[in-house]
Design a protein around this nucleic acid. Structure first.
Lengths: 356, 356
DNA sequence: CTGTTAGCGCATTCAT
DNA sequence: ATGAATGCGCTAACAG
């Protein structure tokens, strides 16, 4: 079938090992044979067999990325960035989609080490800490976006406390007092941390926390719809909603569309994590940018570092943070007076009836 | 490090070959030893080494998917679907992103066969036909979404002629006579075919084709912006635009937003290929659905078929089509009279000022 | 600097 | 039905 090292060696009338040494570029061969072998290999169209090499060396030039899905815009850019970086380094990316399901994650994890991957970047569900910890002895692992609390792995996180704080403070500065929060599950790093940022901003502003304004839920659009309805059905609905659960954003938008709620006139809307179309949506949607691209790059950096410093175990493990940024667009607007909660409501219903 | 077949064999006091036979489930062992070995293997936590197995068998349980990017919504769902299907069958998916760049494609292709992938689903750039053809002798290949004209590979395509026809006819039925078309590069299957569908619908309706209304361009948002501007700057601008170049959609939206063009009042907009947010956009954007999910499923089906019928070469190669569907939402509206282009314009500006 | 030998983990042929 | 032996393609330890 394909041309092997043996073929090259024979053609060059040297032993297989000489050929190997010459082509792998260990300086253990004479300059001349080195060049000669390289030439012959090229002429013959020799391509080393990574499988055979892997069997010997225990390496595969395969690096896996395990994410929950590809619908989440952050995961998309991370996958693209990571794949590009890895390919440039001669690695192939094994992309796995775990669906945020612990069982699938566990499953995938084992098959991945079976395949002798050289490294792993994983967005952990958080339910397979023990397994992850065990695997980390076999292969360098970097956790991305979420921490797995049961482990002590190198971890690259967004600065969610800061991001949520930034966003909430922005809304407060615009005069909003009743700010609805739709946030991710509280058993995830980001879920907890974004809530904490929200709470801190409120406290700093001397605004009493109102539990009815905060909803935590699963990472699906339906969550957004359900929570948005609950918020808008409140006796005193919020004048702004901070959607800090990326996946829920579509659901929220659906509800505001259904109810003909004008943004930002009737309601200010701030979302977490950018999507390409947020900018073209009307109104353009203001966001807290989590820095997906930089997160991915940093994760690759850290992984490569650990892959180089091979065998160092979980030595010098660290947690990294990539700062968030507020990107103001057109979906948030100032509230003039804080003392007329009715006004906004009547205004919206007026707009509604006018439209019908 | 990890437990090997030898370990299992020793623990069971049998030879390695017996262990191998028992565990791979060739019926060449006694029922009893079969079960005993299975049990012991499980107890020891034995996991076969795919690398070693691959070296022997020439297979890897790896199937590659090569797409242009993950920004395109269709590619996202295809990647998700394909990965899910493959994993269920015990394959790992190698996701590669080629950026629609022939050189990258060629590069990736060779490394993939180096890795002895068992199958390949590829969205070809169309510039590496020869290579693809050669590789198809080593590994089953299915082309997806685009055909590579220089090859005769099994190919799964969307029914773009039909889809474009459907979309164009829809606009015509709404009374539009001047329909702008922004379509993909004409050196791609989809680009050519969508144009042809547009042309056919026009011809059937007895509408003369106006070259200034048709723009073909690269698959990037900028294309959409550029083309939209050209169309709107026309002395007699179109009353509807059919964006049949998925990636260009954002660019078109940007321009209409910039110019405060109301959709569908000032301009009807129809897009090709769905995106999750099209439904929540205001107005909700009507689309021609290319059936990404079904395309992916069919591609996997065909690939598996060819992988089973191993060695059959390019025998019985076929081209498959997945039909398109029109999904009407709110971005297209009927034109009452063909002779009052001014009316719609003044109306929209009235609406606009009313809102301000 | 080069050739010889061995072995990675497994599947498979040939014996028995 | 089982064991012994061979080799997939490559790298590395060991001689020379």
């Amino acid at each position: 079938m394909s041309v092997t090292l043996k073929d090259v060696a024979q053609a060059a009338r040297v032993s297989v090992s000489t050929a190997s040494r010459a082509l792998t570029g260990t300086g253990l061969t004479s300059e001349r044979t080195q060049q000669r072998l390289t030439r012959i290999a090229r002429e013959l169209g020799y391509r080393p067999n990574p499988i055979a090499r892997g069997l010997k060396t225990g390496q595969s030039r395969l690096v896996a990325l395990l994410v929950h899905n590809l619908t989440n815009a952050s995961f998309q850019v991370m996958a693209e960035v990571i794949q590009a970086r890895l390919k440039a380094l001669g690695y192939q990316m094994l992309l796995c989609i775990g669906g945020d399901d612990p069982e699938q994650e566990s499953d995938t994890l084992t098959t991945l080490v079976d395949h002798r991957i050289d490294g792993l970047i994983v967005v952990p569900t958080g339910k397979n800490g023990a397994q992850l910890k065990a695997l980390s002895k076999e292969v360098p692992i970097v956790c991305l976006v979420r921490r797995d609390d049961a482990t002590d792995l190198e971890t690259v996180l967004a600065d969610d406390p800061q991001g949520a704080y930034l966003g909430t403070r922005h809304l407060i500065e615009l005069g909003h007092k009743r700010i609805g929060l739709i946030v991710g599950r509280q058993d995830t790093t980001s879920g907890r941390e974004r809530l904490s940022g929200y709470v801190r901003a409120l406290r700093e502003a001397g605004i009493a926390m109102d539990g009815t304004l905060v909803h935590a839920g699963h990472f699906v659009p339906e969550t957004g719809a359900t929570c948005a309805r609950k918020l808008l059905d409140l006796l005193r609905p919020p004048s702004a909603i901070f959607v800090a659960n990326h996946e829920a954003t579509l659901g929220v938008l659906r509800v505001t569309a259904e109810r003909n709620i004008a943004i930002p006139d009737d309601l200010s809307l701030l979302c977490y994590e950018d999507m390409p179309w947020f900018e073209w949506h009307r109104p353009a949607i203001s966001i807290v940018d989590n820095g997906a691209r930089d997160l991915a790059n940093l994760a690759v950096d850290r992984l490569l570092h650990r892959m180089d410093a091979k065998g160092n175990g979980n030595d010098g493990v660290r947690e990294y943070r990539v700062g968030a940024r507020l990107i103001k667009r057109d979906s948030c607007r100032p509230i003039e007076s804080a003392s007329k909660p009715k006004s906004s409501k009547s205004k919206s219903s007026a707009a509604k009836s006018a439209k019908v």
